[in-house]
Amino acid sequence: MARTAIPGRLTWQQATVVETRFDTPQVKSIALTVPGWSGHRAGQHVDVRLTAPDGYQAERSYSIASAPEDGYVVLSVERLDDGEVSPFLVDELRTGDELELRGPVGGYFVWDEPLGGPLFLVAGGSGLAPLRAMMRHHRATRSEVPVRALCSARSLEALLYREELMELAACDPFDISITLTRVQPSAWRGYRRRIDSDLLAEVAWPPADRSLTYICGPTAFVETAAAGLVGLGHDPARIRTERFGGTGVQP
């Protein structure tokens, strides 16, 4: 396991919102410029800090949804209705606003070319954000590592980066499968159920291919996907996971 040195202390940096866009009714992507940003690896996250007029502060961690090559740091934030920070970021924050960032953080749930493949990316709901960073990085670097991705969402409206996924699906090294677990358009030709062992067996690489797998989503989703792949014979050491939320609903 290679040692990844982060030189010096990670300091808080001022970031400015350059664009916001609703990806779904619940998720907004926020593009930020960060002067002097040191760059990041696809899959890393940042800490965000907000400060109220009386000095009160709140911090949260968010995955970076953009590739290192993108120029902006993009965070895709899901509105948690009882949340303190996410409703502000989704509903209040607008172009020109400033907030503080610290990062990038994390060196394990990352992918770049030297890590190879074939890649299997499994996303539940807004867990697609760091995997989208990996796919964008893959394209930006013209990697030839073959990629299979499985994205689970409750409905087409709840699927992040829809157009981008369609574009990727048309590219040669990408094979993208989508399952809509609650509501499907009438002519839907993708999967229509929560992930299970059979679905994983159809979509994943055969275990003999020794794929490198990244799974991100709510805990129950990640548990199902990771345990399912191990059950199919995939090497647990080749499966990297990132989970968010507590007892949240399964997409």
């Binding site: 949260r60 805990t219 647990p236 990297r240 996971t241 989970r243 007892t247």
Partner: peptide
């Protein structure tokens, strides 16, 4: 400092549950 209170019990692990 920098922490917030949660009532549920989030799970974070780098890989599959053994």
């Amino acid at each position: 400092p920098g922490q917030y209170l949660t009532r549920d019990f989030p799970v974070l692990s780098a890989g599959p549950t053994p």
